[in-house]
């Protein structure tokens, strides 16, 4: 039988209990220890991306972005080198945002976020008016860190037929298409520690670009003759070696990516862009000079032969532009 006494006592107890319960959630929700944790993880991830060059499993590969297997990447830092924070390597950035190479979230979880807790995250790089990102857009509550960075630019050696200073082939007797243009790339000159990291060219990690604009005028070929790119030879210390890691664009259309297709002659109407890509275990050493010869004729006799060196005095490096790297974690 329920007495009035029991009812009164129990009511007082329950009322007090409700008051106490109502007091609890307020500080609990305001604390949101998870948010603090998200911020800390975002901060750490931002530091790894912006201040660390990353690390592959094998010490033979000094850089992770050249690894063939995503599982071989221990840490994905984007900095060009240790000690140069804020300067991101374009090759690393391209690899990092390559969705065909890394799978979200597993690969990033393993070598960027770390830890057992399955955080969701989004990394976005806003640079030169475009945004590249990894991961879905964040929900309402997330931890975020914003870092200011610059992305290093690719160097290029530009020869322009319309520029009167680039008159290597402008010889009075030279009225044929028999031309050879040789670009010498002295690696020891390029890999110079005294050059600012933002402008240093390292053929082991950076692509090298050779651009010939207005090629007919540049090669001094009369209007009624066709310009034919017959062959590209790549040599190390003067000895020709097989090397296929380059791309060739003519008027911005990629035409050749394999060595053998080059053997057939092609017409070259306007601008030619040659890019030498860095590869793991390249067939040259740090002290070597690489020479790239463009042969615009199948007649080796009487060909006009010009040599240009690819170094800090001749190449053009566009000014690096700042960007914003954002890491959101939830």
């Amino acid at each position: 039988m329920v007495t009035i006494d029991f009812l009164v006592g129990f009511t007082i107890f329950i009322s007090a209990f409700i008051i106490v319960v109502a007091m609890v959630p307020h500080p609990l929700f305001a604390v949101q220890s998870a948010r603090i944790d998200y911020d800390a993880v975002a901060y750490r991830t931002g530091v790894i991306l912006v201040e660390d060059p990353g690390m592959p499993t094998s010490p033979d590969f000094p850089v992770w972005e050249q690894q063939i297997d995503p599982g071989e990447v221990i840490r994905m830092g984007l900095a060009v080198e240790r000690g140069s924070p804020h300067i991101l390597s374009p090759a690393k950035v391209d690899r990092f945002f390559d969705r065909d190479f890394f799978t979200y979230p597993d690969d990033y979880q393993r070598s960027l976020i770390f830890g057992d807790y399955p955080y969701s995250f989004n990394v976005t790089l806003s640079h030169k008016g475009t945004q590249r990102s990894v991961g879905p857009p964040p929900p309402e509550q997330f931890g975020v860190v914003r870092r200011v960075v610059v992305v290093k630019e690719t160097s290029s050696l530009i020869r322009d037929g319309a520029d009167s200073a680039h008159n290597e082939f402008h010889l009075p007797e030279n009225l044929t298409g028999d031309q050879r243009l040789m670009i010498e790339i002295p690696c020891p000159t390029l890999i110079d520690r005294s050059v600012e990291p933002l402008f240093r060219i390292d053929p082991r990690t950076d692509p090298l670009q050779i651009e010939v604009r207005n090629i007919r005028e540049y090669l001094n070929v009369p209007v009624n003759e066709t310009v034919v790119l017959h062959e590209i030879l790549i040599a190390r210390q003067g000895i020709t070696i097989p090397f296929a890691a380059y791309t060739l664009e003519i008027d911005e259309d990629e035409v050749v990516s394999l060595d053998d297709t080059l053997q057939t002659s092609r017409m070259v109407p306007g601008n030619l862009t040659f890019t030498l890509h860095p590869v793991p275990n390249p067939p040259w050493r740090q002290a070597d000079t690489i020479a790239i010869t463009f042969i615009f004729s199948d007649n080796p006799d009487g060909a006009d032969h010009q040599v240009i060196t690819y170094d800090y005095g001749t190449v053009f490096i566009p000014p690096a532009e700042p960007g914003i790297l954002e890491v959101a974690v939830w």
């Binding site: 007495t3 006494d5 009164v8 006592g9 129990f10 009511t11 007082i12 107890f13 009322s15 209990f17």
Partner: peptide, 14 residues
């Protein structure tokens, strides 16, 4: 008795 116990518990919690 119940009332006294209830008040005591309420005070304790609060």
């Amino acid at each position: 008795l119940y009332t006294i116990e209830g008040v005591a518990a309420a005070l304790l919690m609060i």
